[in-house]
């Protein structure tokens, strides 16, 4: 079972290492991890997806909370939160396939951000399933390169996860 956790950490060097080190030492499985600044430059926000049962999730949250540089840890319930991931996909595209790819891009509300004679780069945003489906559809044309950001997530409504 996959769980999504939002972690607010102090924006200092070495903090990512502490988090990554904790996961490997305790044998927790990270599916994805994304990190970026928050509204407050002193803090960064990580979104971590972990694989495991409820007990594993509980241990992950408790162990993360023990780190001195971790300010807040919160599990996000899928039904009560939105999640997005961005992917850049460099796909083979020649004269024959270009228009077909553009149609798929349109259906998925993705964007073409670079075009050359033999390839294009497409930017797609969505939840994990949408990105997966999009990547799957493009595979027939030949994916030359793929970069995904990992998931970011936020609770719906007025409730906030802040420092």
């Amino acid at each position: 079972m996959k769980h999504t956790i939002a972690v607010i950490v102090e924006n200092k060097s070495g903090v990512l290492t502490r988090i990554a080190g904790l996961f490997s030492r305790r044998s927790f499985n990270i599916e994805s991890l994304s990190v970026g600044a928050t509204d407050n430059p002193d803090y960064a926000r990580m979104t971590i997806t972990v694989e495991g049962d409820r007990d594993v999730l509980e241990q992950v949250i408790k162990q993360l909370s023990k780190l001195i540089n971790v300010i807040r840890v919160s599990a996000l319930e899928p039904a009560e939160s939105v999640e997005r991931e961005l992917a850049l996909i460099k796909v083979s595209a020649d004269r024959e396939s270009r228009s077909e790819i553009m149609q798929i891009v349109k259906i998925f509300r993705a964007k073409i951000i670079d075009v050359s004679a033999r390839s294009m780069i497409i930017e797609v945003t969505g939840d994990e399933e949408k990105v997966d489906a999009f990547v799957q559809l493009l595979r027939q044309f030949g994916i030359k390169e793929l970069a995904r950001t990992g998931k970011v997530s936020m609770t719906r409504g007025a409730r906030t996860i802040k420092a």
């Binding site: 290492t17 502490r18 080190g21 904790l22 030492r25 780190l67």
Partner: peptide, 14 residues
């Protein structure tokens, strides 16, 4: 040494 002792300290500082 901060890297080495990361998993065996409650916290460490450089």
């Amino acid at each position: 040494i901060t890297g080495i002792t990361l998993p065996i300290t409650k916290h460490n500082y450089l």
